[in-house]
């Protein structure tokens, strides 16, 4: 075999390895659908998505996941409201204001925060935050939406902060110089020049942070309380989708309709996070700052 043929073969071997990610993605879809689709011979997609009752072990069972979807959305939204200001402001602090030494330390802090295992955060929320919250606010349970959202926010902050920081960092120096040269204060420069220029990157950060929060399992499993009903207040318990999957999979008979229903929830969750990620990908490509000539 001559060298050129060998080189071409090597190239295709590497291509094959690079395609593994795509193949795995395909296999994920394949597995979810293979195990999840049988449910829809019994339950219509509409009843599944919009049914108000999740009683998978009753006889007859009912597989309406609307309360679970609502649970997921509400903790995700609340977590986003907490995490976005904190994450973005921390990014501003790191990229624009902090002295070098603090900058490095804070970056490490955020990286370590990202490294905290979710089960540890879930444990923290369950064992420390929940009893404190129950006592302080005189609630029936400390395992509720607010608690879960705060802990989820802690998980989403590193994602939001580090991607926002990259976006802020990428704003060309000339923009800042021009603004300062016009007599703007640092605050005005940040708010009127730097933030708008970094907006697509920050939006990407927010989308990815939300995707992280909606798919997070252990925190909502341990902290959200587990009630599969539409909540009436922020201090009610909910049962987000990942929690349902994780809590029930262990006890359900193989290939029962309950088992299929949990995979079907997996499909919904997969599609939701995929949508968030594709939007983030689209936003970051579509509105990418090209050079310093366009804005």
């Amino acid at each position: 075999m001559n060298r050129q043929t060998k080189e071409i073969i090597i190239k295709y071997i590497f291509l094959l390895f690079a395609l593994v990610s795509v193949i795995v993605l395909g296999l994920i879809v394949f597995s979810l659908f293979r195990e999840g689709l049988p449910l829809f011979t019994e339950v219509s997609v509409k009843d599944f998505l919009f049914g108000m009752e999740w009683y998978p072990t009753y006889d007859p069972p009912s597989f309406g996941i609307f309360p679970l979807i609502v649970g997921s959305l509400i903790v995700t939204l609340l977590a986003t409201f907490i995490a976005v200001p904190l994450g973005v402001m921390a990014a501003i602090y790191i990229s624009e204001i902090a002295p070098q030494a603090i900058k490095e330390t804070l970056k490490s802090v955020i990286e370590l925060l990202a490294g905290l295992p979710s089960v540890v955060l879930g444990f923290f929320g369950m064992v420390i935050v929940a009893p404190w919250m129950q006592e302080t606010f005189d609630l029936p349970t400390g395992l509720n939406i607010v608690n879960a959202s705060v802990i989820l926010a802690i998980m989403a902050i590193p994602t939001i902060s580090s991607i926002s920081e990259d976006a802020l960092y990428a704003v060309p120096r000339e923009f800042k110089d021009a603004s300062y040269a016009l007599g703007a204060t640092k605050f005005e420069t940040i708010v009127k020049v730097i933030l708008p220029a970094a907006m697509s990157g920050i939006s990407t950060a927010v989308m990815l942070g939300m995707a992280r929060a909606i798919g997070e399992t252990m925190v909502v499993l341990m902290v959200a309380g587990g009630a599969a009903a539409i909540p009436e207040s922020l201090f009610d318990s909910v049962r987000p989708m990942p929690a349902s999957i994780a809590a029930e999979m262990g006890e359900t008979p193989y290939r029962s309709s309950h088992y299929s229903a949990l995979f079907a929830i997996g499909i919904v969750l997969f599609c939701l996070t995929l949508a968030f990620n594709l939007i983030a990908d689209y936003v970051s490509h579509k509105f990418r700052q090209i050079g310093s000539g366009t804005l």
Binding site: L27, I28, S31, L32, E35, T217, P242, L262, L269
Partner: peptide, 16 residues
């Protein structure tokens, strides 16, 4: 997209 797949979905994938 793979980076964005929730960990519990990875669990389902591993199981399935």
């Amino acid at each position: 997209c793979l980076a964005g797949v929730p960990s519990v979905v990875f669990g389902l994938f591993g199981l399935g």
